[in-house]
Design a protein around this nucleic acid. Structure first.
Length: 201
DNA sequence: CGGCTTATAAACATGA
DNA sequence: ATCATGTTTATAAGCC
């Protein structure tokens, strides 16, 4: 009765009838080396960084500024540089997307995770809380077939934007793992082309 | 057309 | 032993 059912890796022929909502998001690798080197994008010679910014731009901007046919109003999205920068943006976007349609959110799993983590006080969340955040803001997943959690985990592992850190200090219980986002935040904060967003510098 | 990105499913490993 | 978490592989579908 294990959660895993035996099967051969050769047989795969199911068509999940994917909706055409998915857009190509140049996710790119969010720079393997966070903090230190990638912080100075003044060199502007790194293509990786460009790609990096790209996906954020494509996603956050499009979704947040456009929002949708009805939710075109996202005037509040100004954020402060100190800590809760994109929090407001994320919230409104999430709320819009969540309440407007109960269908599949227009955000990739990476974005979903990113938003969840951004909203957390410590910029880090246990996997379970990521599930929770997604469920809260996107009811679609409440009734979605099982497997989206797998996708979340898959994304966490695959994306270099997310780091696995330990939750120490007093907290015994179970040494749960926390996902921390580092470089992505800096990139977003200092990306000047973001409308309605005040760059940190 | 090929390459890249994403979503999904699944196998498997590990720790509580 | 079961479940939650993490990693990795494979495949299909979309986009540029």
């Amino acid at each position: 009765m294990g959660p895993i059912i035996g099967m051969s890796p050769d047989k795969k022929a199911e068509s999940p009838a994917r909706s055409s909502t998915s857009r190509a998001l140049p996710e790119a690798e969010c720079a393997a080396s966070p903090l230190a080197t990638s912080l100075d994008r003044s060199s502007s010679s790194g293509d990786e960084e460009l790609t990096n910014l790209n996906w954020l731009h494509e996603n956050l901007l499009q979704n947040f500024t456009l929002g949708g046919p009805e939710a075109q109003s996202s005037p509040s999205p100004l954020f402060d540089i100190e800590g809760n920068h994109s929090a407001s943006i994320i919230s409104s976007a999430a709320v819009h997307a969540g309440e407007s349609v109960k269908s599949k959110p227009p955000f990739s799993f990476s974005l979903l995770i990113y938003m969840a983590i951004e909203q957390s006080p410590s910029k880090s969340l246990p996997v379970k809380d990521i599930y929770g955040w997604i469920l809260e803001h996107f009811p679609y997943f409440s009734s979605a077939p099982t497997g989206w959690k797998n996708s979340v985990r898959h994304n966490l592992s695959l994306n270099k934007c997310f780091r696995k850190v330990e939750r120490g200090l007093g907290k015994v219980s179970s040494a749960k793992l926390v996902i921390l986002l580092s470089h992505l935040t800096n990139t977003f904060m200092s990306y000047p082309e973001v409308e309605g967003v005040v760059p940190s510098k």
